[in-house]
């Protein structure tokens, strides 16, 4: 099973990186989700695979009978799942706004703010997005 997990983790990481490297901004978001899942699985499998023994204290005992699945990675992953969901929601909202303001989903068009000595064009005159009325064009500020 460990080998299968390793293949699965590698696949998730590889696919997520491929999506992160795409120019389409939506694929970036999907890539983020895959990356989160891959990382969670890596942590999970690092704790060791123990099938069907959750870390619970039975009614008639005061400690968890061995063997049991490692609770620590689980606690970490639980946090990570929730956080990566938060990140995803934020990313989607950001993508939505960017798209509305700049009318492009091509990351290669979104390089202006990082260029040396050039004032980003969008700071001067917001591009009117396709299919959005002119009154919306101040969104980008």
């Amino acid at each position: 099973m460990e080998f299968l997990f390793a293949i699965m983790i590698g696949t998730l990481y590889g696919c997520s990186l491929y999506l992160l490297l795409r120019r389409s901004i939506v694929k970036l978001a999907i890539g983020l989700i895959l990356l989160g899942n891959g990382a969670n699985l890596l942590i999970f499998s690092a704790g060791g695979l123990v099938r069907g023994r959750p870390p619970l204290v039975p009614e008639d005992a005061t400690s968890v009978p061995a063997p049991y699945a490692d609770p620590l990675p689980q606690a970490l992953i639980l946090t990570a799942i929730v956080i990566s969901f938060g990140v995803l929601v934020f990313a989607v909202a950001l993508i939505y706004r960017t798209y509305r303001a700049l009318a492009t989903d091509d990351l290669d068009d979104l390089t202006a703010t990082d260029r040396l000595g050039e004032v980003p064009e969008a700071a001067h005159q917001p591009v009117v997005p396709v299919g959005v009325s002119a009154s919306n064009s101040q969104d980008g500020r």
Binding site: I9, G10, G14
Partner: peptide, 11 residues
């Protein structure tokens, strides 16, 4: 390459 490295690492 990344996938292979991470897979081997997981193993």
């Amino acid at each position: 390459a990344f996938g292979v490295v991470m897979g081997v690492f997981a193993l």
